[in-house]
Design a protein around this nucleic acid. Structure first.
Length: 503
RNA sequence: GGGCGCGUAGCUCAGUGGUAGAGCAUCUGCCUUUUAAGCAGAGGGUCGGUGGUUCGAGACCACCCGCGCUCACCA
């Protein structure tokens, strides 16, 4: 039986033993994989409200996480969605079921009906009257023993700690390290809260294509795929921007999309090849309106998900309540370095950036140099929520030129703890200007910039029909979740992060 | 892609050139309020891979594979 079940010989003896137990269970005419169990109580509910439950019969279910056999009686711990609770079993009370219990392993899923009591040592437990096997586990789960000391501190022994295995087998990680569930619960709440906020502000949630014959809306390398019937090359989207703005042209005044985007780039603690973005566009508004909207929205999410607008993140108290600081990118650089990046020559600027320890290839545009300088001298100081306004035009081919300042566009990014959490601008709705920007980008492509924007003729055509003044916003959801849950790696806020395939 | 680090039993780890180890898990026996239950015993390893140095390599060297952290770009 085992030959086709497992080629992992190091596990064979442990797994083989469980197959034997499975056979013994079947021989006792017990169903090893049940159809349902009518759960009526949960571990923490019982523990937190013991007075109410004492002596009452409950039906609980979960995974066996510890077994302490003492001959004709046993203790065990089961783990359900809320936590762990001890059960107590006696042979003289449950008879044949006790023989079944002896064939169980850590990891098996069981249902227990019994009454709630406290042991001599004070542990709230369920005194088993009836035991039901719900699913036999054939593969040993990594054991994590946990002890709670008198101060309530949890100590865990033999933790399942290999990060690679934790990401690859997240199902095991969630069982053995259940505290990580909190991150994913918060993630879900953040998205729900954001969606509700947008819906309540008259935004319409829409879906735009993931497979696109022309990608755009950001500077990034795409994933390429192929459609067989049409025999065409298709790209997976790198951003939603251009389609959402087509909808603004069409007369939907407030639209948003919470979507997966895909960028074929390196992976590290802030980059996963697929990631979640929220993009939204609103007609007849500009980036000033958008700043008010963003600070209200993030404040709302913080209160709803974290319970307060003042949040302790990495030991620093961050206050999300409006208004956030607003600073000008170039003015702030001038304040810090006395360099006027708009009037200084590109060569002098490159020299200065190099002096600050940045390796340059020589091909950087002036806008890129300004961005570098800003990253070094200003970004680390942006601890409390801050909007950085007005970026060099070269960096923003889809943003509208600043109404008064030459060389800049009306764009802002929100920063918290030195990290960018959103990007927004007054959208470029002048089709002639847009076409010129695209043409400039295509020159970058010819010069070898793989991430420069392609010319999207249909998008220009849409603008030529007329797009109202529009404000647009993009929020990297994974990064926002990292911030709100105090996680330093994107892999810890994505349930199944991208991994190299197992051999 | 560069730099640093890691890879030994199912899990967590020790082992600094001389016969592969510990705790937990597993198996056998005892044990009816235990709790990292306990007591007595047993099994379990291609030390990531390949080559080299050496009388002798888990350890030293080279290369390869995998992973983590970090730097660069971004969201």
């Amino acid at each position: 039986m085992l030959e086709n079940q497992s080629n992992e010989k190091e596990l064979n003896t442990l797994i083989a033993r469980r197959f034997e137990e499975l056979e013994e269970i079947k021989n006792k005419n017990v169903r090893p994989y049940e159809y349902e169990y009518d759960v009526d109580s949960y571990s923490m509910q019982i523990k937190n409200d013991y007075e109410k439950f004492e002596g009452k019969t409950v039906k609980i279910a979960g995974r066996l996480m510890a077994i302490r056999k003492m001959g004709k009686a046993s203790f065990a711990q089961i783990q359900d969605k809320e936590g762990r609770i001890q059960i107590y079993l006696r042979r003289d009370e449950i008879g044949e079921q006790y023989a079944i219990f002896k064939l169980l392993d850590i990891g098996d899923l069981i249902g227990v009906e019994g009454f709630v009591f406290k042991t001599k040592t004070g542990e709230i437990s369920v005194h088993t009257k009836s035991l039901t096997l719900l699913a036999k586990s054939l593969r040993p789960i990594p054991i994590a023993k946990e002890v709670v000391d008198e101060n309530g501190n949890k100590k865990i022994y033999d933790q399942f700690a290999d990060k690679e295995l934790r990401y690859r087998q997240r199902y095991v990680d969630l069982v053995v390290n259940p505290e990580i569930k909190d991150v994913f619960v918060k993630r879900s709440k953040i998205i729900t809260s954001m969606r509700n906020f947008l819906d309540n502000n008259d935004f319409l949630e829409v879906d735009t294509p993931i497979l696109q014959s022309l990608y755009g809306g950001a500077a990034a390398k795409p994933f390429v795929t192929h459609h067989n019937a049409l025999d065409i090359k298709l790209y997976m989207r790198i951003a939603d921007e251009l389609y959402l703005k087509r909808l603004i042209v069409g007369g939907f005044d407030r639209v948003y999309e919470i979507s997966k985007d895909f960028r074929n780039e390196g992976m590290d603690r802030t980059h996963n090849p697929e990631f979640t973005m929220m993009e939204m566009y609103v007609a007849y508004k500009d980036y000033n309106w958008m700043m008010y909207f963003v600070e209200k929205m993030v404040n709302h999410i913080a209160i709803e998900v974290l319970g307060s607008a003042k949040v302790n993140i990495e030991g620093t108290e961050i206050d999300f309540s409006p208004p956030w600081n607003r600073i000008s990118m170039v003015d702030e650089i001038k304040k810090e370095t006395n360099i006027d990046v708009l009037s200084v020559g590109k060569e002098d600027l490159a020299e200065d950036v190099k002096k600050r320890g940045v390796k340059l290839t020589g091909g950087e545009s002036k806008g890129k140099l300004i961005d570098e300088l800003f990253s070094i001298v200003v970004e680390p100081k942006l601890i409390q929520p801050t909007f950085v306004m007005d970026y060099p035009v070269e960096l923003s081919p889809l943003a509208k030129k600043h109404r008064t300042r030459e060389g800049l566009v009306e764009r802002f990014e929100g920063f918290v703890l030195g990290r960018e959490i959103c990007n927004a601008f007054s959208e470029l709705n002048d089709p002639i200007d847009q076409k010129e920007r695209f043409e400039e980008q295509s020159r970058f492509i010819e010069e070898g910039d793989e991430e420069a924007h392609q010319i999207d003729e249909d998008y220009v055509r849409a603008l030529e029909y007329g797009m109202p003044p529009t404000a647009g916003l993009g929020v990297g959801i994974d990064r926002l979740v990292m911030l709100f849950t105090n996680q330093s790696s994107i892999r810890d806020v994505i349930l199944f992060p991208q991994m190299r395939p197992e051999k």
